[in-house]
C-alpha cells in the first residue's frame, strides 16, 4: 500500500494512521515515537513515548522523571507491533549515528517499508552506534546541509585547530560554543583522542548531560564547572565549553581575554561565523554533508525519498537528476541553528 496513504504530514509532525502515533511531534500527543532527544524532535508532555532507553534517559534528565504519561524503551533491532493486531504496523529502531540513543525508525505496513531516519550522520562518533542502512521503499531524510558547498572535515582535524590556537594564544581563554547534547560530549572525546588530557571547563548548562553520558559508560576525563573556579584568570589558556547562546552574554565577560570558537556545521560559511563573532570556527557537525547524503541514499536505494526539512531544493534537484522519485515535505520546526 502506497506509504502516503497511511503516513502523512500534519502540523504536529509525521502521523502514522494505522498505528495512531506521531513521529517526533512538536506538540504533546497521545502516542509518540521519538528518533532522538534533541529538543526539536523530543518535547515533554506526551501521554506515551516509545524510544530507545538512552533517549528516554536524556528526556528524563531534561524534562524531569514525569516527562511523559508512560514510556516504552525499545532496543535497537527489536521488533515491536503497533496498531490493531489484525492489521498491524511493525516497528524497528535502528542506529542513526547522530547522538547517544539516536535511531532511525522503520515502519512496515501491509508490506510497505518506510524508514524515518530522523537526524543522522556517517562520520564515526564514539558516543553512539554507527548509522545502519536499512532497505526500504520510502526513505525519509533531513537535508540540513544539502548543498554541495558543505563538506564536513574530520573532527580530529578541527580539534587539532583548537589545540594549535591554544598554543598560539596561551594567554587567552578558549570559549567554545557547543550544543549541550551530543556535540559537547563528542568534542570532549575527540580532544581526549588527540591527546588533550588537561581538565576541560564547563558552563553550568553542560553539566547534567555530561554526567548522564558518563553514567551510560562514556568516559569524558576530568571536567570542572566554571562556577567552581575561584580565580577565573586561571582559565587563560584553557578550554571552556558553553552553550552557543552564552558565547557573547554577560557570563562570558567573567572569563579572561576570551577567544570565541564554535563547533557547528554552519561554521564552514564565513558570514555565519562572522555573525556570531566567532574568531575560531570549528566545522563539527552531527549531520551528513552533501556527499554523505547522496551516498547514503545510494546505499539505501529506496524507491522514493521524502525530504523533511533543510535545503530541500538542492537535494530534490540532485535526486531528480539521478532519476529518483523524491518529494519535499517542507516540515517546519526541525532545524535549529546551534545544534547542527
Amino acid at each position: 500500500m502506497d506509504a502516503s496513504q497511511w503516513l502523512h504530514k500534519q502540523p504536529q509532525g509525521l502521523y502514522c494512521e494505522p498505528a495512531d502515533c506521531y513521529i517526533d511531534p512538536l506538540h504533546p500527543v497521545e502516542h509518540a515515537l521519538i528518533t532522538h532527544a534533541h529538543a526539536d524532535h523530543a518535547i515533554g508532555g506526551h501521554q506515551s513515548v516509545t524510544a530507545t532507553a538512552s533517549t528516554l534517559a536524556i528526556m528524563q534528565t531534561r524534562y524531569g522523571e514525569d516527562m511523559a504519561g508512560s514510556t516504552q524503551a525499545v532496543n535497537y533491532r527489536e521488533q515491536i507491533t503497533l496498531g490493531s493486531p489484525n492489521d498491524p504496523v511493525t516497528c524497528v529502531f535502528y542506529p542513526a549515528g547522530h547522538i547517544l540513543g539516536s535511531a532511525q525508525i522503520l515502519l512496515c505496513y501491509r508490506g510497505t517499508r518506510v524508514v524515518i531516519s530522523g537526524d543522522y550522520k556517517r562520520q564515526s562518533d564514539p558516543t553512539c552506534l554507527p548509522f545502519k542502512p536499512v532497505p526500504c521503499d520510502v526513505f525519509i531524510t533531513e537535508a540540513t546541509f544539502a548543498l554541495p558547498v558543505f563538506k564536513h572535515p574530520s573532527i580530529e582535524q578541527e580539534m587539532a585547530k583548537l589545540l594549535d590556537s591554544l598554543a598560539v594564544f596561551p594567554e587567552r581563554c578558549h570559549l567554545v560554543g557547543v550544543y549541550a547534547l551530543g556535540k559537547c560530549q563528542r568534542v570532549i572525546l575527540a580532544l581526549r583522542a588527540i591527546g588533550y588530557t588537561s581538565p576541560i571547563y564547563l558552563h553550568g548548562a553542560q553539566r547534567k548531560l555530561c554526567d548522564l553520558y558518563e553514567r551510560q559508560g562514556i568516559e569524558l576525563g576530568e571536567l570542572i564547572d566554571v562556577a567552581e573556579v575561584s580565580d577565573k584568570q586561571s582559565l587563560a589558556g584553557n578550554i571552556v565549553l558553553a552553550p552557543p547562546s552564552a558565547l557573547s552574554d554577560r557570563w562570558s565577560r567573567t572569563l579572561p581575554n576570551v577567544r570565541r570558537a564554535m563547533a557547528s556545521g554552519w561554521m564552514q560559511i564565513r558570514a555565519r561565523a562572522k555573525q556570531r563573532q566567532v574568531e575560531l570556527p570549528l566545522v563539527v557537525s552531527d549531520h551528513c554533508d552533501w556527499q554523505a547524503l547522496l551516498d547514503t541514499i545510494e546505499e539505501v536505494n529506496p524507491n522514493e525519498v521524502w525530504i523533511t526539512h533543510g535545503r530541500e531544493d538542492a537535494l530534490l534537484h540532485a535526486l531528480t537528476q539521478q532519476g529518483r522519485t523524491a518529494q519535499a515535505l517542507s516540515m517546519v520546526g526541525y532545524e535549529s541553528d546551534t545544534q547542527d
Binding site: L147, P148, I269, R270, A271, R311, A314, H317
Partner: peptide, 8 residues
C-alpha cells in the same frame, strides 16, 4: 543554489 546560500 549554493551561491544564493553562501552569498559570494
Amino acid at each position: 543554489m549554493s551561491y544564493d546560500y553562501v552569498g559570494e
